[in-house]
Design a protein around this nucleic acid. Structure first.
Length: 261
DNA sequence: CAATGTGTTGAGGG
DNA sequence: TCCCTCAACACATT
């Protein structure tokens, strides 16, 4: 389910599980998750190194080691698990990092849509992350408003475009737009000053709550908790929710709370 | 069997 | 150039 809050959760997990610990073994159980390096190359580069404090940008996680940096992206189904060395390995555990102190970090991923890279230096990291916009949790209001004003397309498309703003995925974008009472198909640059300010505020509020929960909390009062219902209704007003497709992704909104401009 | 899905990238078109 | 949609990647679920 990885969007920004999930990846931030993985960052904290990596930090508490692995920071300062020596990497004793690297066991690649499925090389299909490796990009630009093979199992032997990964092992040779990392064994004997020590994980430092991990960083995150958008949905990317950067695990520094003092030498090369392990770069992780979780796609739609990836996750990170911290366990003891002797704990049983599960079906989709693709890479195992055995650490000093009897711990083992596992990169788990069912669909293998993204995976692991190894960056040799900072310019390598920059190249891998491509043209990412500012992190959604770090961007300030002025910059956020400037970004939106410069966009010609739809609001939701702008929010989920990682080169505009890094970190928001399909569910979070719908959630934030619903809270800000803005239709996803509003032209991004046509928002009023008040709209933009409200959108920024709701983005921050939604992210803050999700990050402390480690994910988008599918509570009753959240749109996200309703989107897969048989007869999805707005948690605020009870109106039947609308569903369309935008940029190939399922998009849910309330026709009453999010009226046309 | 067909459609769907929380990720990204690249191709093709307006 | 900007932006849109679709296919592809792999796999489970409806």
């Amino acid at each position: 389910m990885p969007e920004l809050p999930d990846v931030e959760g993985f960052r904290l997990l990596l930090e508490s599980c692995a920071s300062g610990r020596m990497i004793r073994h690297v066991d690649v159980r499925d090389p299909g998750v490796l990009h630009g390096i093979d199992a032997r190359g990964l092992r040779d580069a990392l064994v004997g190194r020590r994980f430092g404090t991990p960083r995150r940008h958008g949905k990317w996680l950067l695990a520094r080691t003092g030498g090369p940096t392990l770069v992780l992206h979780f796609g739609m189904t990836g996750s990170l698990v911290c366990a003891r060395t002797e704990d049983p390995v599960e079906a989709y555990d693709r890479v195992l990092f055995t650490l000093a102190g009897g711990r083992r970090l596992r990169f788990r991923d069912q669909r293998k849509l993204q995976g692991l890279w190894l960056a040799h230096d900072d310019s390598d990291v920059d190249r891998l992350l491509g043209r990412q916009g500012p992190d959604a949790l770090a961007v300030d209001r002025t910059e956020f408003e400037t970004l939106l004003a410069a966009r010609r397309g739809h609001l939701k498309t702008a929010l989920t475009d990682q080169s505009v703003l890094a970190g928001l995925g399909n569910l979070l974008a719908d959630e934030i737009l619903w809270r800000a009472r803005l239709r996803p198909d509003r032209p991004a640059r046509d928002l009023t000053e008040a709209d933009r300010r409200r959108l920024y505020g709701e983005m921050r509020r939604t992210l803050r709550t999700s990050v402390s929960a480690g994910r988008v909390p599918p509570r009753d009062s959240w749109l996200t908790g309703r989107r897969d219902d048989h007869d999805p209704r707005c948690p605020r007003c009870g109106t039947a929710l609308c569903r369309t497709r935008m940029a190939g992704r399922g998009t849910v909104w309330c026709p009453r709370c999010q009226p046309a401009a």
